[in-house]
Amino acid sequence: VTLFVALYDYEARTEDDLSAHKGEKFQILNSSEGDWWEARSLTTGETGYIPSNYVAPV
């Protein structure tokens, strides 16, 4: 399991995006899409895309 933590708040801009709150942890499901990674929030269980530069490894 690849875990990352949000460094900043991010507000989803499309229905495919996933909002993130600073300190929230995510499981990365797919990081092969360049700057946008598919992730699952460990807080809400929701999945979507987050900007890779907004997260760091735990």
Rank of each mutant, 00 (worst) to 15 (best):
V1T: 12
V1S: 13
V1F: 14
V1R: 09
V1A: 12
T2E: 11
T2V: 13
T2Y: 11
T2Q: 13
T2L: 13
T2I: 14
T2S: 11
L3R: 02
L3C: 12
L3V: 14
L3H: 09
L3K: 04
L3G: 03
F4Y: 15
F4N: 01
F4G: 04
F4M: 08
V5A: 05
V5W: 06
V5F: 10
V5T: 04
V5S: 02
V5Y: 12
A6D: 00
A6T: 03
A6G: 02
A6S: 05
A6L: 06
A6V: 06
L7N: 02
L7Q: 04
L7D: 00
Y8T: 06
Y8I: 06
Y8A: 09
Y8D: 07
Y8L: 08
Y8C: 14
Y8G: 05
D9R: 03
D9Y: 05
D9A: 07
D9C: 08
D9S: 06
Y10G: 00
Y10V: 06
Y10S: 01
Y10P: 00
Y10M: 04
Y10A: 02
E11L: 10
E11N: 09
E11T: 12
E11P: 06
E11F: 11
E11S: 10
A12V: 04
A12P: 11
A12G: 11
A12Y: 02
A12M: 04
R13M: 11
R13A: 12
R13H: 10
R13P: 08
R13Q: 14
T14D: 12
T14A: 11
T14I: 05
T14C: 15
E15K: 13
E15P: 14
E15H: 11
E15I: 10
E15L: 10
D16T: 15
D16Q: 14
D17N: 09
D17E: 15
D17F: 14
D17C: 15
L18V: 07
L18W: 02
L18G: 01
S19E: 06
S19I: 04
S19V: 06
S19D: 08
S19F: 05
S19L: 03
S19R: 07
A20H: 04
A20N: 01
A20R: 00
A20Y: 07
H21R: 14
H21E: 08
H21L: 10
H21D: 04
K22Q: 09
K22N: 04
K22D: 02
K22F: 05
K22W: 05
K22R: 11
K22I: 10
K22P: 05
G23D: 05
G23P: 00
G23S: 02
G23Q: 02
G23I: 01
E24N: 02
E24D: 10
E24C: 06
K25T: 12
K25Y: 15
K25M: 15
K25N: 07
K25I: 15
K25H: 13
K25R: 12
K25P: 05
K25L: 15
K25S: 06
F26G: 00
F26P: 01
F26I: 05
F26H: 00
Q27P: 02
Q27H: 11
Q27I: 15
Q27M: 13
Q27L: 14
Q27N: 06
I28A: 01
I28T: 01
I28C: 05
I28R: 00
I28G: 03
L29R: 02
L29H: 03
L29S: 05
L29P: 03
L29Y: 06
L29I: 11
N30L: 07
N30V: 08
N30D: 12
N30T: 08
N30H: 07
S31W: 13
S31L: 10
S31R: 13
S31T: 13
S31N: 12
S31Y: 12
S32F: 09
S32L: 12
S32E: 11
E33W: 12
E33H: 14
E33F: 12
E33P: 10
E33V: 11
E33A: 13
G34A: 14
G34K: 13
G34C: 11
G34V: 10
D35V: 08
D35H: 11
D35I: 09
D35G: 11
D35Y: 13
W36T: 07
W36I: 10
W37A: 03
W37R: 00
W37G: 00
W37F: 09
W37V: 08
E38C: 15
E38Y: 15
A39D: 03
A39Y: 08
A39S: 03
R40Y: 10
R40E: 07
R40M: 14
R40Q: 12
S41T: 01
S41W: 04
S41P: 04
S41G: 02
S41D: 04
L42N: 05
L42Y: 06
L42Q: 08
L42S: 03
T43W: 13
T43H: 11
T43Y: 08
T43C: 12
T44A: 02
T44W: 02
T44Y: 03
T44Q: 02
T44K: 03
T44I: 01
G45D: 05
G45Y: 05
G45I: 04
G45C: 10
G45Q: 05
E46W: 07
E46D: 09
E46N: 12
E46Q: 14
T47Q: 09
T47P: 00
T47C: 09
T47H: 07
G48K: 02
G48W: 04
G48R: 00
G48E: 01
G48L: 04
G48S: 01
G48C: 07
G48N: 01
Y49H: 07
Y49A: 04
Y49S: 05
Y49T: 06
Y49N: 07
I50S: 02
I50C: 03
P51E: 03
P51V: 03
P51I: 03
P51R: 06
S52A: 13
S52E: 03
S52Q: 07
S52C: 13
S52W: 11
S52M: 09
N53L: 10
N53M: 12
N53R: 13
Y54Q: 07
Y54N: 08
Y54A: 14
V55N: 01
V55A: 03
V55S: 00
A56L: 07
P57Q: 08
P57E: 08
P57M: 08
V58C: 10
V58G: 03
V58F: 13
V58R: 00
V58M: 11
V58L: 13
V58T: 07
V58H: 07
V58A: 09
